[in-house]
Structures are given as C-alpha cells and as structure tokens.
C-alpha cells in the first residue's frame, strides 16, 4: 500500500467510525425519548404499559371534568368512542381544552388504571383534529 493510499484509508476509517458513533448516539437518544401513541380503547384493554411515558388521545367526555377544591388537580374522561379512560392532571389546562374537544395527553398509566398526565395538549385550530385521534376514531368506527 502506498503511503497516500494508507492516509486515505485512515481518513475513511475515521469517517466511518465518526459517523457510526454519531448515528449510534442519535438512535440511542431517539429510542430513549420517543413516546408511543395509544388510543383510549387500547389503554382500557390493558395494552399500554404501566409506568412508561406514553401519549393518549381522544375526545373529552361530556360532564366528566372534576376539579379539586383546594388545588389545581383536575380529572376528566377521554374517549375514542370505544372505551373511555380517566385522566388526572395537576396544573393549568390549555385554552382550547373543553368538553368534546380532541386532546392529547402525555404521561404514565398508574396502578389504578388512571392516566397520570404531565402534559395536556389541545390545538390552535378547532376544526383541526390531530391525525392520531382522527385515525384511531376511524378505526373504531370501522370495527363496529
């Protein structure tokens, strides 16, 4: 091997090594930080893992919003018109949060089957439905 080729080989090896590390680290970071989306029926059927951070989406069930008297704790039901689940959240709900509005909650299932949300998202546009919810409701309608 000529010295020039040798140098080139080192450069290529360094590049492959560097890229490998970068890709590896990125995939690792990605895997640690993705949140799987579940529909409420899936959660109610026990398909969602307990204690792992997930996203759940659905429509807020009418007359289901209950507020605590002395704190900002609030609980409400959400449904994909299959099986509903109960969500518990402490904090300030977004402006577009209201009954029969599509929302997405992020958080974990607890042992009592209540979804402990640390974030509740409702969207800018009231005509807009997050694709996840639209699809999971469509699926629901299809199976019935």
């Amino acid at each position: 091997m000529t010295p020039k080729r040798k140098k080139r080989l080192y450069i290529i090896l360094a590049l492959v090594f560097g890229t490998g590390i970068a890709v590896g680290l990125t995939m690792y970071a990605l895997n640690q930080n993705i949140n799987l989306f579940y529909s409420t029926s899936q959660v109610a059927d026990g398909e969602a893992p307990v204690g792992t951070r997930i996203r759940v989406g659905g429509m807020v069930v009418k007359n289901s919003i209950k507020r605590s008297k002395d704190s900002l704790q609030v609980s409400f039901g959400i449904t994909d018109y299959g099986k509903p689940i109960t969500v518990s959240f402490t904090g300030i709900l977004p402006d577009l949060f209201r009954e029969e509005q599509g929302i997405i909650a992020q958080g974990k299932m607890d042992n009592q089957g209540i979804f402990q949300a640390d974030e509740v998202l409702a969207k800018h546009d009231e005509n807009y439905m997050p694709p996840e919810i639209a699809e999971s409701m469509k699926k629901k309608a299809g199976t019935e």
């Binding site: 680290l25 970071a29 990605l30 930080n33 949140n35 799987l36 989306f37 992020q106 996840e132």
Partner: peptide, 14 residues
C-alpha cells in the same frame, strides 16, 4: 410501526 412522537429530550440530548 405505530404512532410515536419524539420529545424535546431527544433534541436537547443531541
């Protein structure tokens, strides 16, 4: 392969 979202921790980490 399922619906997921990638959260801020990923972006911050990189």
């Amino acid at each position: 392969a399922g619906k997921i979202s990638v959260g801020p921790p990923y972006f911050n980490a990189v």
